[in-house]
Write a protein that binds this DNA or RNA. Structure first.
Lengths: 117, 117
DNA sequence: CCTGCTATTCGTAATTCGACGAATAACGAA
DNA sequence: TTCGTTATTCGTCGAATTACGAATAGCAGG
C-alpha cells in the first residue's frame, strides 16, 4: 500500500523540535493495547521479580501465546529478559515508557472543552 | 486450558492497587495505537480548535479513513464531537486519559532492573 | 548418555484492523 | 425546493493480530 507520504526519517535522531514522534508513541501504545500485556506489566510491577512461567500462570493463557506477548513487550523495549537457564527472568524497563507518558500528561493538562456533554 | 474467568470487580471499591483495570487500560492504549490517531490528538492539542475536515488534511488520509479513526477516539472517550452543521467540532477530553497515564507513571517510577543492559 | 524442566518457534486457524471509493445523510444558502 | 458542503456509513480487500497445540532448543541432574 505504501501510503507513507510522510518523511520516514531514519533513526538518526533528526531534529524534530516541534513535531512529535507519532510513530514511536503509537508503537508504545500498541504494545500496551492488549489486556494480557497490561497484566504482564502490572505483574512485573507488583512482584518486582521476574520469573517466566509464573507470568504464564498469572495471566491464564497458553505458554506459547504468553511468549508472543512477552516478545511484543520486549520488542517495544518495555521489558527486558535475563536468561538464567532454564528460566528467563523478566523485568520492567521503566524509562521506556517516558515518551508515551509525557504525551499523555500534555493531553491531560489541556483545557477541557468549553461545552459540557 | 483452564480459561481464567475475567472478573469484573467494581472500580470504586477500596484498594486501587490490586484491582487493575487491564481491560480499560488496554482499551485506551489501543485507541492511541496508531500514528494517525496520535496525530489527531496532537493536532487537537496544538490547535485548541476543532475543525473536522482540517484534521483530514492534517493527517493526509482519506476522509472516510479519518472518520473511522475519529470514531475510535470518540468511542474511547478521548475526544468529543460537537455537531455544528454541516461541520463537526472536535475537542479533547483530557480527563479520559487519566487511567492510562497513572498506570504509566507507576511503571516509570518502578526501580530499574538490577542488571544493566 | 538420557530425562525433565522451561521457553521459544512453527504452522495454522479465526478474527480484527486499516485503507479506500462510493453512497448516504443533514443542514445552510440560493 | 434544489444545490453545495461536510461528515459518516457501507462494502470490500489485504494485512496484521491473537490464539492454540505441536515441535524444538538448552541446560541441570540422575
Amino acid at each position: 500500500m505504501a501510503v507513507k507520504p510522510a518523511r520516514k526519517l531514519p533513526a538518526g535522531s533528526s531534529g524534530e523540535t516541534d513535531s512529535l514522534d507519532a510513530e514511536g508513541i503509537a508503537m508504545l501504545a500498541k504494545a500496551l493495547a492488549h489486556p494480557a500485556r497490561v497484566k504482564v506489566v502490572d505483574t512485573l510491577l507488583r512482584r518486582r521479580s521476574c520469573i517466566g512461567c509464573d507470568i504464564v500462570e498469572e495471566i491464564g493463557l497458553a505458554a506459547s501465546t504468553t511468549s508472543e506477548h512477552l516478545r511484543i513487550l520486549k520488542e517495544a523495549g518495555l521489558i527486558v529478559g535475563e536468561i538464567a537457564r532454564p528460566r528467563v527472568c523478566y523485568s520492567l524497563n521503566p524509562e521506556a515508557v517516558a515518551p508515551l507518558r509525557a504525551f499523555l500528561q500534555l493531553v491531560e493538562a489541556a483545557p477541557a472543552p468549553a461545552f459540557s456533554e
